[in-house]
Design a protein around this nucleic acid. Structure first.
Length: 424
RNA sequence: GUGCCUGUAGCUCAACGGCAGAGCGCCACACUGUGGAUGUGGAUGUUGUGGGUUCGAAACCCAUCAGGCACCCCA
């Protein structure tokens, strides 16, 4: 072990991990762009004040990396993106073209206890639509999430997006006579239910001030998976999801509450149903009042976020990651001996100019060693220029996937290589 | 920030308080014009770190760091 350790909860991306990160980025971009969303980003460092307004005390006081800069101002590594989004939208509120559809994929930091699925430094996909307040807009965001899940080959049996609606739950809480000031506590109670055994949970609920009748009502509520039919918003949402072709990924669940204060309508969370992780893959919902806190006019939005850590573990455990290819080059030119060294270098250069990613062995070495290297780097084609070939302007082309090889004239070389690369 | 568990070779793990080991991987050779397979040989290390107990510590105790599980929160 080296003497200096990494900072707790940070992550080192060796080429294999970097490939996974780029794979996620690629799929995130594809899903976002398929629905016409524009890529954007905010600063990685913000003032602490930006988050003080709306993010919730927990996030600001306990989970942010806060520093005093050299000028004495308190700054923080961004723990989430939504406040930056709100400010940037507010700053150009009257010149943007609505609806705004924006997505982003970048680093975030939270000072948390690292464990499986949670790091202090992570990458997060954020995607939002602003300026339209409708269940159909909510459905579009859920459809983007489903499109992503589909694109990484997580099928609806494996990944489910659970949906609920804050307004629906509020009206149900009203009916039970649960006062507004108790809502947050009840929300937390609901969030906790799956983690406690039911007798304990009952006792805990009563202890927190619910009457027995309210508790019974609450339990009936949380077990009612047809409750969505009472909500016009959710009825429209599910109709839209069906039209968008993603209905099989989505289920109504009255137990989905979500802790963040700013959600006002539809809320949703995606989970892996069969893996070892019980953490949300992604989560989001509708928010209505975000811009007011940064000085903008009221503007409604809907969006969600997905961290790279949980989805990465799930895809790995499910065996859904594409095979890691160490070298971005598929072609390697061997160096036969010192006298032919520069011939190999020249050939490699020619191939690169023709658009082929090409590795050339950096020194003369025994051929077995060079071939072993090409094999380990999972390259597809190895080229040899020995004395015989050099004399006749030929090159030996070996297909490393099956061991077959042929000697070709240099003019035909590109064609032959390209044919091999094109075949599976 | 709190509680519990774990930390030994690159990886997965073993070793009763008594000489630190195995499998896989790695390197070399068999193979001086050809990778994967096979065989032979080789190197694995301040037992996370620092202290203590003991004739003797990888093991027991304390501290510390890191990881995991739960709480909290959440992507």
């Amino acid at each position: 072990m080296s003497k200096t350790q990494t900072v707790k909860g940070t992550r080192e991306f060796y080429p294999e991990e970097m490939a996974l990160r780029n794979y996620l980025y690629e799929k995130v971009r594809a899903a976002s762009q398929a629905f016409g969303y524009q890529e954007w980003d905010g600063p990685f460092i913000e003032t602490i004040d930006l988050y003080a307004a709306k993010s919730g005390e927990e996030l600001v006081k306990k989970q942010s990396f806060v520093f005093e800069d050299r000028g004495g101002d308190l700054v923080t590594l961004r723990p989430e993106l939504t406040p930056s989004l709100a400010r940037m939208i507010a700053a150009k509120q009257n010149e943007l073209t609505y609806p705004v559809r924006w997505w982003s994929f970048g680093p975030f930091w939270r000072y948390e206890q690292p464990q499986k699925g949670r790091a202090r430094e992570f990458f997060q996909w954020n995607i939002d639509m602003l300026g339209v307040n409708s269940p159909e807009a909510d459905a579009e965001l859920i459809a983007v999430a489903a499109a992503f899940l589909r694109s990484v080959k997580l099928d609806p049996q494996r990944a489910v997006i659970y949906v609920n609606n804050r307004r629906l739950m509020d009206s149900q809480f009203d009916a039970l006579g649960i006062p507004v000031e108790k809502r947050l506590e009840v929300s937390n109670l609901v969030d906790r239910r799956s983690k406690m055994d039911s007798a304990k949970w009952d006792a805990y609920a009563l202890e927190s001030g619910l009457m027995q009748k309210q508790l019974d009502g609450l339990k009936a509520l949380l077990g009612d998976f047809d409750l969505w039919k009472k909500s016009d918003e959710l009825t429209r949402l599910f109709a839209a999801l069906e039209a968008l072709g993603v209905k099989e990924y989505v289920k109504f669940d009255p137990n989905i509450m979500r802790g963040l204060l700013y959600y006002t309508g539809t809320v949703f969370e995606a989970f892996d149903t069969s893996g070892s992780l019980k953490r949300a893959i992604l989560g989001g919902g509708r928010y209505d009042n975000l811009l007011a806190d940064v000085g903008g006019q009221p503007l409604s939005g809907v969006g969600f976020a997905m961290g790279d850590v949980v989805i990465g573990i799930i895809l790995q455990e499910a065996g859904l990651l594409p095979e890691f290819k160490p070298s971005p080059a598929s072609v390697m030119v061997t160096v036969f001996d010192e006298s032919l060294w520069m011939k190999s270098y020249a050939l490699a250069s020619e191939l690169r100019r023709a658009g082929l990613n090409t590795v050339v062995y950096p020194e003369p070495a025994k051929l077995p060693k060079q071939f072993k290297f090409a094999d380990k780097m999972k390259m597809r084609v190895a080229l040899v220029i020995g004395p015989d070939e050099a004399e006749k302007e030929q090159v030996v082309v070996k297909d490393l996937s099956n061991g077959s090889q042929q000697t070709v004239q240099k003019e035909r070389l590109l064609d032959v290589i390209q044919k091999i690369l094109a075949s599976l």
